[in-house]
Computed example of a mutant assay.
Amino acid sequence: MPTAELPAVPGVLSARDCRLTAETIAATQESDGALPWFTGGHTDPWDHIENAMALTVGGLWDQARDAYRWSAKTQRSDGSWPMQFRAGVIENADSDTNFCAYIATGMLHFLTSTGDSEFAREMWPTVRAATDFVLSLQQGRFGEIHWSLGAEGSSGEALLTGCSSIFHSLRCALALAEQMDDPQPSWEVAALRLGHALRDHPEAFLDKSRYSMDWYYPILGGAIRGRRGYDRITSRWPDFVIPTLGIRCVSDQPWVTGAETCELVLALDALGDQRRARQLFINMQHLRDPDGSYWTGLVFTDGKRWPEERTTWTGGAMLLAADALSRSTPGNGIFRDLLPGVRNSGCCCECAAGLYPGPS
Rank of each mutant, 00 (worst) to 15 (best):
8 A>T: 07
13 L>K: 02
15 A>S: 15
20 L>P: 03
26 A>P: 01
30 E>N: 10
34 A>W: 06
34 A>Q: 07
46 W>C: 03
46 W>Q: 03
56 T>V: 15
65 R>Q: 10
66 D>N: 13
72 A>S: 12
73 K>N: 14
81 W>Q: 07
85 F>W: 15
97 T>F: 03
102 Y>E: 05
108 L>Y: 05
111 L>R: 03
111 L>T: 03
113 S>A: 14
114 T>M: 06
118 E>L: 13
119 F>G: 06
123 M>P: 09
126 T>H: 07
132 D>C: 08
134 V>W: 00
143 G>D: 02
143 G>T: 04
152 E>S: 14
164 S>W: 00
165 S>D: 07
165 S>K: 08
172 C>P: 03
180 M>P: 02
185 P>N: 09
196 H>A: 07
197 A>V: 06
200 D>Q: 14
203 E>A: 14
203 E>N: 13
205 F>H: 08
206 L>F: 08
207 D>C: 14
208 K>C: 07
208 K>D: 04
217 Y>C: 06
222 G>E: 06
224 I>Q: 04
228 R>Q: 10
229 G>C: 08
229 G>D: 13
232 R>H: 11
235 S>V: 05
237 W>V: 13
238 P>Q: 10
246 G>A: 07
256 V>F: 02
256 V>E: 02
264 L>A: 04
265 V>Y: 00
268 L>V: 05
271 L>H: 02
274 Q>T: 11
276 R>Q: 11
276 R>D: 07
279 Q>W: 06
296 T>A: 08
300 F>Y: 15
303 G>D: 14
311 T>Y: 00
313 W>Q: 03
314 T>H: 00
315 G>I: 01
319 L>G: 00
321 A>D: 00
327 R>S: 09
328 S>Y: 06
332 N>K: 06
339 L>M: 07
343 R>W: 14
346 G>L: 14
346 G>K: 11
347 C>I: 13
349 C>E: 12
352 A>K: 13
357 P>Q: 14
